[in-house]
Design a protein around this nucleic acid. Structure first.
Lengths: 193, 193
DNA sequence: CTCTATCTTGAATGTGCATTCAAGATATCG
DNA sequence: CGATATCTTGAATGCACATTCAAGATAGAG
């Protein structure tokens, strides 16, 4: 007889931001209330508890990143060129560092995966999907003759993803554009050569 | 008129392990008491507070890793060969994953650096020293004619370190020996070619 | 316009935590 | 062996937090 008033996606994106900024443990319900505009009771009603909110935020993150990823390849340019754009975007995120720009997945992974196997699985699946998507792009690059036919696309995808993880961690200590761009350049070179 | 009874290094290594395992926030004084064998009062007397214990543990970690690093190069083999051994050791650590084997530095970095600029600085300095040490090894490899003279050794060191960060994060989701070894192999190839 | 099912609100609850501190223990010195 | 400075102990303190819940508000049905 009455509908919820809040916009679920907006709430989840606000929660994401809060979790990325302070980490899961240090983000209090107070913080989440401020970030989402939802009172504790509403959060508990909609998401069961703080952990439930994180799980929902992780799922929204996955959807948002999937959309973002696909947009980078939604044109007729060579797939490798788009891949480089995608990588440049990661670097740009690292530089703009509110430090809230860290990847929610890796942040959550290092903080809580050890303690909570369900969250561990959700995050791992999430990252595996990205890896799979990358592998498909490399396959396409093979079809386009951008990379040689004897390459192992799954290996390339893993290496590329490893590079992105490393880039993000590196940016914590050296958020200088020039250095990060140089690293990204070499990473791109090493997967496309 | 009376000396402290505990072994400072042992206590710090126990604290390290605890912090690596659960993260800083989730490691309670209770946990630290269990891990170190020290009662709260003694911890506060020796290290001021929980944060002081982390800082002390970070310093001990730096010393331990420095020693470990130097041992890998304490022979007359070609420096690049030793570098590969060092990398293989990182992989081995990742595989043996108690999941307490994550690097204390990157774990602490992602958890608390944003919130505490002193700890941020300590960790950054710590990682910069490793980067510097790696750069010197690449310089030596140049002297040994293992790599070409026109390489930028600092860039190689940064790229190598980035790879190690990435490898460690990757291992959270894929702790399979074969995959990690393959990634390490390519990383080594890309910095030594 | 009324009634009711549902949503919103935020104060109250209980728990777990970092930190303190005073009493007890003990090594060292004279 | 006694005196004392220092260390050890762990219960007590107070605070911050996640979670609950009952009272208040409001949309929609009739």
């Amino acid at each position: 007889m009455r509908n919820a008033e809040f916009d679920r996606e907006k709430v989840l994106r606000a929660a994401m931001k809060a979790f990325m900024h302070k980490g899961y443990a240090k983000t209090s319900m107070q913080d989440l209330k401020k970030a989402t505009g939802l009172h504790p009771g509403s959060i508990y009603c909609a998401f069961e508890n703080k952990r439930g909110l994180l799980l929902a935020a992780l799922e929204q993150y996955r959807l948002d990143r999937k959309t973002e990823f696909e947009q980078f390849f939604a044109n007729s340019t060579l797939v490798l060129v788009n891949l480089k754009s995608y990588l440049d975007n990661v670097v740009a995120e690292c530089i703009s560092c509110d430090s809230a720009q860290a990847c929610l997945l890796t942040k959550a992974l290092s903080e809580i995966a050890d303690q909570d196997s369900e969250i561990q699985r959700v995050i791992s699946d999430n990252l595996s999907m990205l890896q799979q998507a990358l592998a498909e792009k490399f396959e396409q690059a093979k079809v386009e003759k951008s990379i040689s036919a004897d390459k192992d696309c799954h290996h390339l995808a893993r290496y590329f993803l490893m590079g992105i993880y490393g880039l993000r961690t590196f940016a914590y200590t050296h958020p200088e554009a020039k250095v990060l761009e140089q690293l990204a350049e070499q990473l791109y070179h090493d997967v496309s050569q």
